[in-house]
Nucleic acid binder design. Structure first.
Lengths: 369, 369
DNA sequence: GTCGTGTCTGGTAGCGCTGTCAATGTTCCT
DNA sequence: AGGAACATTGACAGCGCTACCAGACACGAC
């Protein structure tokens, strides 16, 4: 339908004009219809305030009438920059990143910037490679995950002439901007919460062990050591990607070799759910016999039976704020505060509520294994 | 700080070379070092076989030595096409799409194509808008979700001169290629499975009610009607986005108004988990009193207690195959089979295993409400 | 009246790459 | 030997847009 219309226009214009190859509406066509020069029309799209009110209206209606859509490749080539925000994240599977991404996409919507996503698969070498690729295309801005880049990556980031936001965690030397929270402190808060509930023999269950999970483990270890309760045998980790099933399996490992455990700190909520299911399978009563705390506070934690305690992290907000800060910085509005701590919060639920100590029978590691 | 560094580089290079503006390595530099014409160097990157072995090696080493990275904007402008695969999906939150996306990204990795993702938020008008935007940039290929486009969108898709894959479901008039499965048949299979377990008063719990969930409902309705068991009051749906908590709530609604329900078919696994938790909360024994079946077979279904029956769908494979087919088509290798049914499979688990009928007490809708 | 100052507009010259087509060399056949 | 057929290479002319600078014009101050 509208194709005919467009073809019609083309022929008309081919008659009168030099050449309108391929029937595309170019800026020149818009300018002609509006009765201005191409450069004026171009300005309309980049900085409308620079035009007089009359021309602005003329160009606007001409563009709308012709259904003009700018050619981004030509724009990028001529202006030597793109309107692309490159995002490097380690995983697409992980719920955590899908929330962050949603925030990023939401913030980019309505702006002129588009998101170019790439997956480092938790490899800093892969990250380096992607960084090289992306930076060569001169993105308008860059969002990278974490603070553990290779030296080469770090150098490239510092030499890049675009704003950069590091997300997910905080560290001492931001490349540019940084938004996250302390995984170390969050883990310490989780342990402190369990201490407050009267739990002292606290297991740690972790999977994948990427840098942020590692820092949660570090926080757990430090808190346990401070209390004089640390025992290496309480820690069960694996490099395998996380899953609910894995949570059950790791917890089973823990029970098989340790006794007297009264709580489990899970490095994420999937693992926590797996631990809960495993408890149910073995008839271990939560929290009376074993308390459970997860990490991230995914939606299902509030819904489980018993409801599961977790450390809430502001993932969506992190993504959204990162993209917003980045866009502001691209457009020259640098934030007054380049490093933002979004914090965390222990959401106390049934799975770790204080138990009457006397009513708690000891749990044998071999109870049902 | 780093700005100085970069300026320094620029000056150095401006001195020594003809005009290497902005210090960038261009194709011309590579060609010069290799002792060939720029166009030959260009061919090396697009069709290496066209070069003699000697020149191929020379260009390759020159490119590597200079660390040449092609300027995609210039390439896109000159060739009138991009190496971008545009992907339109309705949601980033939904686990289902993150699996599909992972497949798409995995398949695109190692290819020359990059993924441009956009979120329609379940709105076909938003989809139409994004489609117009994307098509103007001449993507190399397009992946769109579902078969329910607006007439305008449909016209644009048919006029687009790039391969297109519709994913997630099957339908009568593919625009080009299509890969998915029948949600209608899958729902019928789920109901048939419950019939086979001796359940006949089967509730339906659905959220968001996008076209695919709607077709699952249609399948449920048709199967129930065929068995003479359909009752509109067994159906609980809402437009609200899905969640585990919502599963609990909708199931509570169902129980509050109906009695004698012996099974629940949940339109997705999150809802099913919510129903399971709600059963546990009310002391309803699964599957003895109520059977549960979900949809998609997310990872946690196999881990729950009891393990949850679900309809497995091949989401990752769908994404992967869609992207692979698309890339093949872009490169001229059209698939012999443009429409692919990836099927589904009812994964029978404890939550719906056949119960001895006589031992099953009736569940009152008001039992715990 | 002249000059500055500021606002708005347009001309020119590419951005870095590739499509087209012509111009070589090279091989193999009759 | 002659020529067709093929393989390999290069020259040229843009792709559609914007950076840069210059010009045009209005306004007020001296």
């Amino acid at each position: 339908m509208f194709l005919c219309l467009r073809k019609g226009l083309c022929y008309e214009q081919m008659m009168g004009r030099k050449r309108t190859k391929s029937g595309k509406i170019r800026l020149a066509e818009v300018a002609e219809l509006a009765g201005v020069s191409p450069i004026t029309a171009s300005r309309f799209f980049r900085n409308p305030e620079a035009l007089s009110v009359a021309k602005r209206a003329r160009v606007e209606s001409a563009a709308k009438e012709l259904g003009y859509v700018p050619n981004l490749a030509a724009r990028a080539l001529a202006s030597q920059r793109t309107e692309v925000i490159a995002v490097l994240i380690p995983s697409l599977t992980n719920n955590v990143f899908s929330d962050v991404l949603r925030g990023i996409y939401d913030a980019s919507e309505g702006s002129r910037y588009s998101i170019q996503l790439s997956n480092t698969r938790y490899s800093i070498l892969q990250e380096e490679k992607l960084l090289r690729l992306f930076l060569a295309q001169k993105p308008a801005g860059l969002i990278v995950t974490g603070i553990d880049q290779t030296a080469e990556s770090r150098a490239m980031l510092e030499a890049a002439d675009c704003p950069i936001v590091q997300i997910m965690e905080l560290g001492p030397n931001p490349v540019d901007m940084m938004i996250g929270f302390s995984h170390y402190d969050a883990a310490r808060a989780a342990v402190a919460h369990l201490f407050a509930q009267g739990c002292y023999r606290i297991g740690f269950v972790g999977a994948r062990m990427d840098p942020r999970v590692q820092r949660r483990l570090d926080g757990y270890v430090s808190a346990m050591k401070e209390a004089g309760r640390f025992d290496q045998r309480l820690v069960v980790t694996t490099a395998t990607p996380t899953s609910v099933t894995l949570g059950s399996a790791l917890f089973a490992d823990l029970l098989a070799r340790e006794t007297g455990i009264d709580a489990v700190f899970c490095a994420n909520d999937d693992l926590a759910l797996g631990v809960l299911f495993e408890c149910r399978r073995r008839g271990i009563v939560v929290p009376e016999q074993i308390a459970i705390i997860g990490f991230n506070d995914l939606e299902f934690m509030a819904s489980a039976v018993p409801t599961l305690t977790s450390v809430r992290t502001n993932r969506y907000e992190m993504g959204r704020t990162a993209a917003t800060m980045l866009i502001d910085a691209i457009e020259g509005r640098r934030p007054e505060q380049p490093v933002l701590d979004l914090g965390f919060k222990v959401i106390e639920r049934q799975s770790s509520l204080a138990r009457r100590m006397e009513s708690r029978p000891a749990v044998s590691g071999h109870a049902a294994g």
